[in-house]
């Protein structure tokens, strides 16, 4: 037994030493840290083929997890993929490297409305990757009553039929919208106002899932829910019985970006990657695989009429949409509120 332990430790030490050596070898390599289910492998392989730069691709499933990991491994990642409010937060804390736009001529492919985002005027630190909304998806075979907004989804008669994103800030923002409060006005007073509504809603939800709500909706385990538009668009592509609605009370619009973290080891490779994914034909591959709202005007021209007509990817702009802003310490208040609600208090 002891011998076994020693062998085990020796192997581990050796393998650690091995890791060290390989990282010291200086070779161009792109460390990409991005959302899960968001960057097609084809695109990564295409980039390596084109430039000869191999890509290390790591994934996360929330902006907060990304930030935690980023802070604990400084000067490691070359490219990250934060959403709008996280870009704002990262800029505020000086954690991003300015992007040299002259190295990325393909930014001209972006639609004008994406080129001057309010969270990063002039795209100094970020380049939009994909955008989208959080909205309601429902199975029209099962749900016959009209669904217009959150109040139509969270009804007692749908108890146990609902799926929702497992994201505290998202959930709270739905209740804020339903109460007519600005989704970025997260104050203790406003949280108290939405608490009873949220308590009622949470009881009706069958599944909280941020990763992939498609299987449960497809198999009929649930019939409606509040999800990311990309997942809804995929469901609609597979079966027209699925419908996507932007909540009448207002909805969250998100813009995910590519950014270079401070002290990134290989800034040039990162800029080359941004330029590569902005090519129309490459951006189209991303849209094919993950049908979110593509901010790339040149790529949109390559999409099929069906893709452009998908209401989840390209919704009519009749509903009041708003992006998230950095709310700082109020995140902890949201976290505490949701812990209380989930424990029935």
């Amino acid at each position: 037994m002891k011998l076994f332990h020693i062998v085990l430790i020796v192997t581990m030490v050796l393998s650690l030493a091995g890791c060290n050596r390989s990282s010291q070898k200086q070779q161009q390599r792109l460390h990409l840290f991005a959302w899960s289910e968001y960057v097609p492998q084809e695109v990564i392989d295409g980039f390596t083929k084109q430039t000869g730069i191999p890509v290390d691709y790591e994934v996360y499933d929330s902006n907060e997890k990304m930030l935690t990991k980023l802070l604990s491994s400084p000067a490691h990642y070359d490219l990250i993929q934060p959403s709008e409010y996280m870009v704002e937060h990262l800029i505020k804390r000086g954690l991003l490297e300015p992007i040299d736009q002259s190295a990325i001529p393909n930014v001209s492919n972006l639609l004008p409305e994406y080129r001057n985002p309010e969270y990063d005027p002039g795209m100094k630190y970020s380049v939009p990757y994909m955008a989208g909304t959080v909205g309601i998806v429902f199975n029209s075979d099962k749900i016959k009553d009209p669904i217009r907004g959150y109040q139509d989804v969270f009804q007692p008669k749908y108890a146990g039929r609902i799926i929702a994103l497992d994201d505290n800030r998202e959930i709270v923002s739905w209740a804020l919208d339903a109460k007519g409060i600005d989704i970025n006005d997260v104050t203790p007073a406003n949280l108290t106002k939405v608490k009873p509504l949220l308590a009622d809603w949470l009881k009706l939800v069958k599944i909280f899932n941020s990763d992939d709500p498609k299987p449960q909706l497809f198999s009929g385990d649930v019939d409606l829910g509040v999800v990311y538009c990309g997942d809804a668009a995929k469901l609609i592509e597979q079966d027209k019985k699925f419908k996507y609605v932007l909540p009448a009370e207002g909805a969250h619009r998100f813009i995910d970006n590519l950014c270079i973290p401070k002290d990134a080891p290989d800034k040039q490779a990162a800029e080359a990657f941004i330029n590569y994914i902005l090519r129309p034909e490459v951006s189209k591959i991303i849209s094919d695989k993950f049908p979110y709202t593509n901010p790339n005007g040149a790529a949109r021209k390559l999409l099929t009429p069906q893709q452009l007509a998908n209401p989840a990817s390209y919704p009519p702009e009749s509903v009041h949409l708003e992006i998230f802003h950095d709310i700082g310490k109020a995140n902890a208040d949201i976290s505490q509120l949701m812990t209380e609600l989930r424990n029935g208090r």
Partner: peptide, 20 residues
């Protein structure tokens, strides 16, 4: 389905979910 949370989930949330 995300309904039952135990102390381990709460600790994970505090560390990864932008908590404290």
């Amino acid at each position: 389905g995300g309904h039952i949370r135990l102390i381990g989930d709460e600790i994970q949330e505090q560390f990864e979910g932008g908590g404290d």
